[in-house]
Nucleic acid binder design. Structure first.
Lengths: 118, 118
DNA sequence: CAGCATCCCCACTGATACTG
DNA sequence: CAGTATCAGTGGGGATGCTG
């Protein structure tokens, strides 16, 4: 993932972390209790395993996510949000509420109702 | 700009709006009082005029920004946040504060001090 | 179940030059 | 000042197949 070499404003920092297509949803699902790769994959509509792992690794690099591994079989790894990741979740929660408002204003509540968000 | 055709979750909606490289900073600067193209360009480090206009137009499409034009010379146009844009600014303000925290934790306060953010 | 390696494409970005 | 047009590079995203 390509990030600016120089940050002239803190906003650029957070944006570089958030801008990946799947990152907000991954953080969202991590906070909702999905911790294993397979659970995350199941809970995120349309993501491929490769993209999931790639974005998780980037979140690891940014210190938003931490990971535990067991070495026995079957393999089991767990991802969870760090404090920094939890803080970032707050921003993502607001993004979620904005998305809901926009969909309501645009009369697209159908999807929200389907998902029990309304 | 490419967006998902189908939204399975409101978060994807907001993310599609925010993901452009310059959009958060543009919204930030709009809320800080830069309204003309030239003022925005001056206040945003490293943006080209083309990218500025392109992102502004996308924000117009999403209903985050509105615009007024006068037809005399010299040309004068003004961009400003809609209510929806102001709401989105709230999320961006949080992103900004997260960025500040990260830079402090990573001992990169130098930039923040330069800009009077600390 | 968890994760890596390849290959490919297209969308985003950016530089430059031109117009009202 | 405000905006359009064109062209080129690249890296993010996705499909697929393999490994422990």
């Amino acid at each position: 993932m390509k990030v600016r070499e120089e940050y002239t404003c803190p906003l650029e920092m957070t944006h570089d972390i958030i801008k990946g297509k799947w990152k907000p949803i991954i953080i969202w699902q991590l906070s909702k209790g999905s911790h294993s790769l397979s659970a995350l994959k199941r809970s995120i509509n349309g993501i491929s395993q490769k993209m999931l792992i790639q974005h998780l690794n980037e979140l690891l690099e940014f210190g938003m996510v931490d990971k535990t591994m067991s070495d026995g079989y079957p393999l089991k790894s767990e991802y969870f949000l760090t404090d920094r990741g939890k803080k970032t979740f707050e921003a993502i929660a607001i993004m979620q509420s904005i998305g809901i408002e926009i969909m309501v204003e645009d009369n697209r509540q159908d999807i929200l109702k389907e998902k029990g968000l309304l």
